[in-house]
C-alpha cells in the first residue's frame, strides 16, 4: 500500500506557554524565509556561473514570469481546465472505486477472484495506454478524463477493498444474528469501518488525478496548465515555463493540504477511539 508515507505526525510540541510558542513561531518563520533566501541565492549563483544550462532563467526573471502569469487570463483559464478535468476524473474514480471496493472486500470469493486483476491494474503504468486512448478518443477532454479515471481508480479501489476486508468478524456475526437490513449494515457498519482506509485512497487518488491530468496536457494538445508549460518551453519562454511549473506545484500542494485537513477532521472519532 501507499499508506505508510502519510502517517500522522507524532505530537511533538509539548505545549509550552503561549508567548514562548508565538515567539518560536516567529523565529521559525524567519529561519524558513532565510532558507528560502539561501535556496534562491544558490539558484541565482548557479545560473550566473553557468553551472545550470544557459537557458535557465534567473530569479528576477522567474519572479517577473510569476507576475505575468497571475495577471494573464489565459493562465487562469488553463488552471481552470486542468482543475475541472482532474476533479471530474477524481470524482468518477472515487465513486466507482468505493462502490466496487465495498462490494468486493466483504465477499471472500469475489475478493480472491479479483485480486490478480486488481493488482495488475494498480501496477499497470496507465500512461502507457495514452497513445491508444488518444487514437480512440482524440485530444479531447473526455480522453483526458478517461485517462485520469484509469490512473486514479486503483488506489481508491485497493484501499476500499482493504478497508472492507478489515471488518471485525465479531461485528459481522452480530450483524448476521440480528438480521440487520442490508442498507443499514452498509451505511452504519461497513462504511464507517472502512472509512479510514477509503480516505487514504481518496487522497492518493487526488494527487494521481492532478499528475495524470497535467501529464496528458504535456503530451497532447489538450488545453490546460501542462499544455501551457509545453507551449512556453517551445516558445523558449523559460521564465513563464518555470512560473507555470511553480503554480502547478502550488496547486498540487494546496489540494494535498486541504485533503489532509479534511481527512483528519473527518476521522477525528477514529483517532480518539484507537488512542
Amino acid at each position: 500500500m501507499t499508506t505508510t508515507h502519510t502517517r500522522a505526525p507524532s505530537a511533538e510540541t509539548k505545549a509550552p506557554r503561549r508567548s514562548a510558542l508565538l515567539q518560536r513561531d516567529w523565529s521559525l518563520l524567519a529561519q524558513r524565509l532565510g532558507a528560502l533566501g539561501i535556496i534562491l541565492a544558490l539558484w541565482q549563483a548557479a545560473v550566473l556561473t553557468g553551472l545550470l544550462p544557459s537557458i535557465t532563467p534567473t530569479v528576477p526573471e522567474v519572479t517577473l514570469g510569476l507576475w505575468t502569469a497571475v495577471t494573464s487570463t489565459s493562465f487562469w483559464t488553463a488552471l481552470g481546465q486542468t482543475l475541472s478535468a482532474a476533479t471530474a476524473g477524481w470524482i468518477i474514480s472515487c465513486v466507482l472505486g468505493v462502490f466496487l471496493g465495498l462490494l468486493i472486500g466483504p465477499l471472500r470469493w469475489l475478493d480472491r477472484s479479483t485480486s490478480v486483476t486488481v493488482e495488475f491494474g494498480r501496477a499497470f503504468p496507465t500512461i502507457a495506454l495514452m497513445p491508444v486512448i488518444l487514437l480512440l478518443l482524440g485530444a479531447t477532454t473526455s480522453m483526458q478524463i478517461t485517462m485520469v479515471v484509469l490512473s486514479a481508480l486503483w488506489p481508491v479501489l485497493v484501499q476500499s477493498i482493504l478497508g472492507a476486508r478489515r471488518l471485525d468478524p465479531g461485528i459481522a456475526d452480530t450483524v448476521r444474528i440480528y438480521r440487520i437490513p442490508r442498507l443499514l449494515w452498509f451505511r452504519r457498519v461497513l462504511l464507517p469501518s472502512a472509512l479510514p482506509f477509503v480516505t487514504t485512497g481518496v487522497r492518493i487518488a487526488a494527487s494521481i488525478s492532478i499528475l495524470a491530468a497535467v501529464g496528458i496536457e504535456v503530451l497532447t494538445q489538450v488545453p490546460g496548465i501542462g499544455r501551457m508549460i509545453t507551449l512556453a518551453q517551445e516558445a523558449q519562454r523559460w521564465d513563464l515555463a518555470f512560473a507555470y511549473l511553480f503554480f502547478a506545484g502550488l496547486f498540487g500542494w494546496t489540494v494535498t493540504a486541504l485533503l489532509a485537513r479534511a481527512e483528519s477532521s473527518l476521522l477525528a472519532w477514529n483517532r480518539q477511539a484507537s488512542g
Binding site: 529561519q31 532558507a35 494527487s207 504535456v218
Partner: peptide, 25 residues
C-alpha cells in the same frame, strides 16, 4: 522544521510537468 514546507512543496509538483522543462533544457 525549517525545510519541511519546501520538501512538501517539491513533493507536490506534478512530476510530469517537469518533463518539458528538463528535456527542453
Amino acid at each position: 522544521l525549517i525545510l519541511d514546507p519546501y520538501i512538501h512543496f517539491f513533493r507536490s509538483v506534478p512530476q510530469s510537468a517537469l518533463v518539458p522543462l528538463i528535456i527542453g533544457a
